[in-house]
Computed example of a mutant assay.
Amino acid sequence: MTEDDENPTDLSRRSFMRETAFGATAAAGTAATSGVASAQEGNESGDNESGGANESGGNESGGANESGGGNESGGASGNVEPAWPSFVTDANNFNGTEDLRGQGEATVQVGAGSDGLAFDPPGIWVDTGTTVIWEWTGEGGGHNVAAVEGGDFASEVSSESGFTFENTFEEGGIVTYECEPHTSQGMHGGVAVGEEIETQEVQQEGGGGGGESGGGGVQLPGAARAVGVALTVALGSTLGLAYVFMRYGGDYEEDV
């Protein structure tokens, strides 16, 4: 009679370890396979959904761009601005174009900035026939407004707060102007008039913006995550059962 016949309910630690390891390995394989399949299905469905969105959304936005092809002739949408000369983009206080189209009047402050040596805003876009009113703040000393290119106007020099000068822009194009006493200090500006002007794409600050795409961390595929979770669970179960059996289980030696 064998030991197993004498103790049918008693397993040795070695037998238990072998059977537990085999069962855990099989469970890990099954879990990993199902995890991979689930992840792949999720990825496929996610890809299809995003792909569909890209197809519809991309085509719709592409269509908008095609209809906005008038940008070449000056027709503007939210992603273009006047092609300013460096005289304007290098001006004090320049931070992009202020789109004031659709308004009969536009106001620009004279003597803006921390030292009063800037126009605010220095670059504006208006419709043909718009009247631009320059209003003095009284800061930075005496200023004037004088056309440099594309226009023919000039105001007197004044340091009085509330003093104003205006000009109506009847012809399209880009007009640059300056404060003659402070032009060497960067007190420049520009007025883009109408739709028939040269435009360029708006330059977004911050470049590609990694934050929008979720940062620079390493992203694991869903399948890899599923396999990792399955193997971790299976290995933990195996080690846990082995520890319990070795500490509290039956005899390791055979009975004589």
Rank of each mutant, 00 (worst) to 15 (best):
G216P: 05
L220P: 11
G222L: 14
A230I: 03
A226H: 01
L239F: 06
T238S: 11
S237K: 03
G217S: 09
G222C: 07
A242F: 13
A230L: 04
T232H: 00
G240D: 05
G222Q: 12
V233P: 02
A223P: 03
T238M: 13
G208M: 13
G215F: 07
L231I: 09
G208A: 15
G216L: 09
L241F: 11
E212P: 00
V218M: 13
G216V: 10
L220S: 15
A226V: 01
S213W: 08
Q219C: 00
V227R: 03
L239Y: 04
A234P: 09
A226R: 03
S213T: 08
G228E: 05
G222H: 07
L231P: 00
G240K: 03
E212D: 14
A230V: 05
L235D: 05
G208N: 13
A224Y: 07
G215Y: 09
G209L: 02
L239G: 02
S213R: 10
L235K: 00
R225V: 15
P221Q: 14
G210V: 00
T232E: 07
Q219G: 10
G214A: 04
G217T: 05
Q219E: 12
T232Y: 03
G211I: 05
V229R: 07
G210H: 04
G215H: 07
P221E: 13
G216Q: 12
G214L: 06
P221I: 02
A242H: 07
G236S: 13
T232G: 12
G209S: 04
G215L: 08
G211K: 07
Q219I: 14
V227T: 09
L220T: 11
A230W: 07
A224E: 14
A223L: 02
L231H: 00
V218H: 13
V227W: 06
A226Y: 04
G215I: 02
G210N: 01
V218Q: 15
A224W: 01
L220W: 11
A230C: 10
A234D: 01
A230T: 01
L235N: 02
G216D: 15
T232W: 01
L235S: 13
G217E: 09
L231Y: 01
G209R: 09
T232S: 14
A226E: 12
L241Q: 08
G211H: 08
R225T: 13
T238V: 11
V233W: 13
V227H: 07
P221D: 15
T232V: 12
G240H: 07
G210W: 00
